[in-house]
């Protein structure tokens, strides 16, 4: 105990922890993510058959998928899908909706300003910050190096 070496200890601990089930996770993520995207495709085809133009179809599909993600979060179903499907549920736009709605629901008790509004982006905030920042950088580079 007295000569406990942190590095050796951490190695010893690693061996005690069950290994993540990568193969199972990858397959489930593929199936769940694929299923969500298939639903998206289905909505897209339905909307274009109704006569919407390409831009309107993609906006409307995103809106519907975000709505579904938010609704399933509110009903307490999306966290189950996430537990089962992992990245397959987190990566599509429905997962983004979940990451905003979940904290908004959780912090409702603290009020609409200091609770819902200020905590809403605790998970999605970094995605937005770095997503928007990198798009600006790419935009500047595009202007500089065009032609």
């Amino acid at each position: 105990m007295d000569n406990l070496n942190n590095k050796d200890y951490q190695k010893f601990v690693e061996e005690k922890i069950p290994k993540p089930t990568y193969a199972r996770n990858i397959i489930l993520a593929f199936l769940v993510g694929g299923a969500i995207c298939t639903i998206g495709e289905f909505i897209m085809n339905y909307l274009s058959n109704k006569g919407l133009d390409e831009e309107a179809v993609s906006s409307a599909t995103s809106i519907i998928m975000v709505f579904l993600g938010a609704l399933l979060t509110g009903l307490g179903i999306y966290d189950q899908i996430g537990k089962f499907g992992g990245a397959g549920a987190a990566v599509p736009i429905t997962g983004f909706a979940n990451s905003i709605v979940a904290p908004a629901m959780e912090f409702k008790k603290e009020g609409f300003i200091f609770g819902v509004a200020s905590k809403m982006f605790v998970i999605a905030g970094p995605v937005l910050v770095y997503g928007v920042s990198s798009s600006i950088i790419v935009g500047i580079l595009t202007i500089l190096f065009q032609r």
Binding site: P20, N25, Y78, D79, G82, A102, P103, M105, E106, I123
Partner: peptide, 15 residues
């Protein structure tokens, strides 16, 4: 809610 994630957030817990 104090130490980890909101309850309805779709995450996987480590083993």
């Amino acid at each position: 809610r104090q130490f980890r994630f909101p309850l309805e957030y779709a995450s996987q817990r480590k083993f």
